[in-house]
Nucleic acid binder design. Structure first.
Lengths: 185, 185
DNA sequence: AGGCCTATCTTGTCAATGTCAAGACTTGGG
DNA sequence: CCCAAGTCTTGACATTGACAAGATAGGCCT
């Protein structure tokens, strides 16, 4: 199907991830991505209308991958592991997560992005529903609290606001932090 | 003291905030800031070495303002109001908060920024210490959980991940969410 | 098989941006 | 009064995102 490069679209996404990992999402340059991929400076145009489109695609991919991670973790049935999986994903896919939570880089109203975000949200909410089963409290609020907790922890870690020793166990940290959430009463 | 503009440094910070509020921190242009302030395109150089330096100054100012807000809220003695103040600050100073949490825009190792962030962290931690007084649990972990919770909630709201009705009461939302944290046991 | 047609990629170009260098203007002190 | 320092301007350059036009390859139809 593709002709010259094999699959330039994927190659662009991968090299963009590489660049984001090195210099952060704000410093991403389309021309640099093209250079790394070995194509001309205007080649990306045919796969991504915009620089924003590339970043939006990356963000959507990140949310989809996160939703997958959460799905796997939910299979364990242990609610706390959902939160752990969230934080572990963020720290093990820092480039994806940085793009996901960067303000204004991705097109927030992109349908693909919205769908992927919805999947991740759905995983969290269904986990909370099982967790809160039989409780009289507002499950949506608890879900938002859980989401906020893990999202915030991941953000603080990746912002460097929470200094993390290189040998630190992120999963253990996440478990400790999420243990501060209410159990159902 | 200053000669032509009165206080160009402050004017640049203010116009930068304005621009960030309109187009997001990633789209900030030094030349645009200079234009808005009515000075030449190279004038900012004498007050901020870099574009990064301007953003770093904004971030530091934001953390300092946040620390002030938290200090005021802590005076109430009610721990939950600390979290509420955090989220209210984020939503009422969206430009500051966007710069604060944007990955890679500010120079993370800037001493002024680190100091301001430390002040905000200190407010949260001392609040948690009072909250957890007499508890056997690890107060640092609880502090991190509280910080993560409010930071994450603010981030999700400002990312648009949590759709907020225009007439919604942010303080009330924050109160509901933070109520999911453990009381000391 | 042969010829078109579309998708893919390249080269060329333009305005805008960040940063640097050099010069001009204002202010205040000796 | 004049000079020195701080403040701002003008000018320049490489880089970037985006657009336009042309080249190339592969698939499709007859």
């Amino acid at each position: 199907m593709p002709y010259h490069h094999g699959d330039l679209r994927r190659a662009l996404l991968d090299t963009a991830l590489e660049a984001v990992g090195e210099q952060g999402p704000a410093a991403l340059s389309l021309r640099d991505v093209a250079r790394r991929a070995g194509v001309s400076h205007a080649a990306p145009t045919h796969h991504f209308r915009d620089k924003t489109a590339l970043l939006t695609a990356l963000a959507a991919e990140g949310w989809a991958l996160l939703a997958d991670s959460l799905r796997d973790a939910a299979a364990d049935g242990d609610f706390a592991e959902l939160g752990v999986a969230y934080v572990v994903f963020a720290t093990s896919h820092p480039a994806h997560f940085a793009v996901m939570r960067a303000p204004g880089l991705a097109r927030a109203d992109d349908p693909e992005l919205e769908a992927a975000m919805g999947q991740a949200r759905e995983q969290l909410e269904s986990g909370v529903r099982r967790f809160e089963d039989g409780s009289t409290r507002d499950a949506a609020t608890t879900a938002l609290a859980a989401w906020s907790l893990v999202h915030g922890l991941a953000a603080l870690v990746l912002e460097g606001a929470v200094p993390l020793k290189p040998d630190a166990d992120v999963a253990e940290l996440a478990r400790a932090v999420t243990s501060r959430l209410h159990p159902p009463t």
